[in-house]
Each structure stands twice: as structure tokens, then as C-alpha cells.
Amino acid sequence: MDSDGVVDGVVVGGGVVGLTAAIRLAERGLRVRVWSRDAVTGTTSAVAGALWWPYRIEPAAEVGAWSLASLRVYEGLAADPAATGVRLVAGVHADTLLSGLGAWAGEVAGLRPLAAEEVPGPYEVGLAARLPLIDMPVHLAWLRARFEAAGGVVEHRAVTDLREAAAVAPVVVNCTGLAARDLVPDPGVRAVRGQLVLVENPGVDTWFTAADGASSETTYFFPQPGRLILGGTAQEDDERSAPDPSTAAAIVARCARIRPEIARARVLGHRVGLRPTRAGGVRIESEPLPGGGLLVHDYGHGGAGVTVAWGCADRVAELVCGS
């Protein structure tokens, strides 16, 4: 924003999707504000695991390109993990076949099928990979700093109508996640509840996932600095924000079947996030605003916002600025 207060664009939503879109616009020279209802640490993004992987996200025709664009960014950011929160970490996707993935999988270096005896737990198939694992509190702070270094301004502001932003700037980018259900309104937006358990890391240095897309229960653990994140759940239309003790106990038990030492790890805390899924998948498209303005939608990423954020941000920049 210039000192005269002129604003070219307002991005509504301060999670990973909103911040990456704002960065792309600001680094193209636009004067941009981010309006966020929550502090960075209070967004759904802050609760994320967050392993790069296109999981439970549509539309399939677009997701591969968005994911790979984001992967290339994270691979670069992993050169400075202390600052960016991004590390490349080895792990296993159990119960997953290479043939069941899209063409994007062929562009992931080192992704390979495992022999049955190499797969942990009661699984006969799996894939090994070295993928970006992102410490979200650190990464979100880094994203905000990068945005502000490009001249952007973050404001803590709750929005009840997107026209509030349109009154300030000719370009509005809607990255409101679950709130898009009421703001757009879009009845296709639904919550998928994810619950996590944070424990002291008993020496686990690789990640593991076993996620059935048709089940409300998943099994995964991600080693992050100072903690091991255990998951998880995918409970559709469940908007409870408080952790459920029985769910937490079941998560620990599932993870301990893979790594028994997890059963004895001291619990540090619990987290719940509501993933914003959408019928038909991610919505990235523009529509005119009265008076000649432009509204760009970028929401409906479910639990894969981190995975596709940069690819989606590139698309937003194309819609706003041209290719």
C-alpha cells in the first residue's frame, strides 16, 4: 500500500491460501491488503500437519499442476528450513499404489513402490518418498513477513459481506475457506473435521500415512521440531471445535500400532481444524463487480491447501494481472 492509502487489491482470508495469493499479487507490484478474521496462529492452516501430498482434493484435471507448482516452491524453500519451516523428509504412504495416482506422480522425484516387507504395520503395499513437511506456525510467519516485505499490509478484520472489500479496492480475492459458505454464499462448502494429538517425539524421524479416502479415520504421524503430530480424522459435517478424548486415544493407539514407542510418549496438546471442502472441488474463477471491479474466488481446498497453495496463487495472479 502506498503512503497515500491507495489499495489495488484486498485478499480476504489470512491462511496459507490467502497469504500465498497476496504474495503473488504484491510481488507483481500491486498494493495489497490481507484482511484476516484470525491471527495467523488462529487459522485452520496453523493446525495443518502439513505434508505435501494431493489428498482428497478436486478437480483432478487441475490439481496435479497446482500441486507440482507448489512442490517446486517448497523444494526451494527447504534450503532454509529454520526460516521457512519447510524440510524435505522421508516417509511412507501405506496402502497406496502408484497406479492409483495421477500423472503428477511421475514428476515427484524418488517416489517408488515398496515391497510388502518394507511397508510398516499391517499393510502389503505402499510408496516411499521424500517430501516437503512444513512446520506451519513457522511457515505462516515467514509468509506474512515475505508479504510485508513486498509492501503488503495485514489487517485483522472480520468480513460479513465481500462488498466491504470491494468498497476499498477494485480487486477482491476471496480466500475465506469455510466462511465462503455464507459469504458467497456457496452451499457446496462443507466442513471436514480433523483432530490431531501432539506428543513428545520418542525418536521418530520419518513420516507415515495410511489414509483411506472413504473412511473418517486416518493414521499418520509427522515429526516436527519439538513435537510429533499424530492423526487423524476426516469427519464430514462435524463442526465440533473441542478435542474429543476418545478420538484422541484412538489416534494414539492407531499410530502406536506402527511405532510402538508412540504409546508411551507424553501428550503435549490437542488440535482441531475444520477443513473447507467443496462439492466440485476448488473454485478458482473470477466474476465482475459493480463499477468495473473484479472478484476472484480461491476456496474449497479441503485439507490440501498447503499442497496446492502456490499453484492456486499463480492462477489467481493470472486472473488479476494476465499471464
Rank of each mutant, 00 (worst) to 15 (best):
residue 50 A to Q: 10
residue 50 A to H: 09
residue 52 W to N: 02
residue 52 W to V: 01
residue 52 W to M: 03
residue 53 W to S: 11
residue 54 P to L: 09
residue 55 Y to H: 14
residue 56 R to M: 13
residue 56 R to D: 13
residue 57 I to Q: 03
residue 58 E to Q: 10
residue 58 E to V: 07
residue 58 E to G: 13
residue 58 E to C: 06
residue 59 P to G: 11
residue 60 A to H: 15
residue 62 E to G: 11
residue 62 E to R: 15
residue 62 E to I: 08
residue 62 E to L: 14
residue 63 V to S: 01
residue 63 V to W: 01
residue 63 V to C: 03
residue 65 A to Q: 12
residue 66 W to Q: 04
residue 67 S to N: 05
residue 67 S to D: 06
residue 67 S to P: 04
residue 68 L to A: 00
residue 70 S to T: 14
residue 70 S to H: 06
residue 73 V to F: 07
residue 74 Y to Q: 00
residue 76 G to Q: 05
residue 76 G to H: 01
residue 78 A to G: 06
residue 82 A to K: 12
residue 83 A to I: 00
residue 83 A to G: 04
residue 84 T to I: 10
residue 84 T to R: 13
residue 85 G to M: 02
residue 88 L to Y: 13
residue 88 L to E: 15
residue 89 V to I: 14
residue 90 A to T: 10
residue 90 A to C: 10
residue 90 A to K: 13
residue 90 A to F: 07
residue 92 V to Q: 01
residue 92 V to F: 01
residue 97 L to Y: 11
residue 97 L to K: 09
residue 99 S to E: 14
residue 101 L to G: 01
residue 102 G to N: 02
residue 106 G to T: 00
residue 106 G to Y: 03
residue 108 V to A: 12
residue 108 V to S: 13
residue 110 G to E: 03
residue 110 G to W: 01
residue 111 L to N: 00
residue 111 L to Y: 01
residue 112 R to G: 07
residue 113 P to F: 00
residue 114 L to H: 03
residue 115 A to S: 09
residue 115 A to N: 02
residue 116 A to V: 04
residue 116 A to S: 12
residue 117 E to K: 09
residue 118 E to Q: 11
residue 119 V to T: 03
residue 122 P to K: 04
residue 122 P to W: 02
residue 122 P to E: 08
residue 123 Y to L: 02
residue 123 Y to E: 04
residue 124 E to G: 15
residue 124 E to V: 14
residue 128 A to T: 06
residue 129 A to C: 02
residue 129 A to P: 09
residue 132 P to F: 12
residue 133 L to V: 15
residue 135 D to L: 03
residue 136 M to A: 03
residue 136 M to N: 05
residue 136 M to Q: 09
residue 137 P to M: 01
residue 140 L to F: 03
residue 142 W to I: 09
residue 144 R to S: 14
residue 145 A to H: 14
residue 145 A to C: 07
residue 147 F to R: 01
residue 148 E to F: 02
residue 149 A to H: 02
residue 149 A to D: 11
residue 150 A to H: 06
residue 150 A to C: 05
residue 151 G to H: 02
residue 152 G to S: 03
residue 152 G to R: 04
residue 153 V to G: 00
residue 154 V to N: 00
residue 157 R to N: 00
residue 157 R to E: 01
residue 159 V to R: 12
residue 159 V to T: 10
residue 160 T to I: 08
residue 163 R to E: 15
residue 163 R to M: 11
residue 165 A to V: 15
residue 166 A to M: 07
residue 168 V to P: 04
residue 169 A to T: 07
residue 170 P to C: 15
residue 170 P to W: 09
residue 170 P to Q: 12
residue 171 V to P: 00
residue 172 V to M: 05
residue 173 V to W: 00
residue 176 T to Y: 12
residue 176 T to Q: 13
residue 177 G to K: 05
residue 177 G to S: 05
residue 178 L to M: 08
residue 179 A to T: 04
residue 180 A to L: 03
residue 180 A to Q: 08
residue 180 A to P: 02
residue 181 R to H: 12
residue 185 P to T: 06
residue 185 P to I: 09
residue 186 D to K: 08
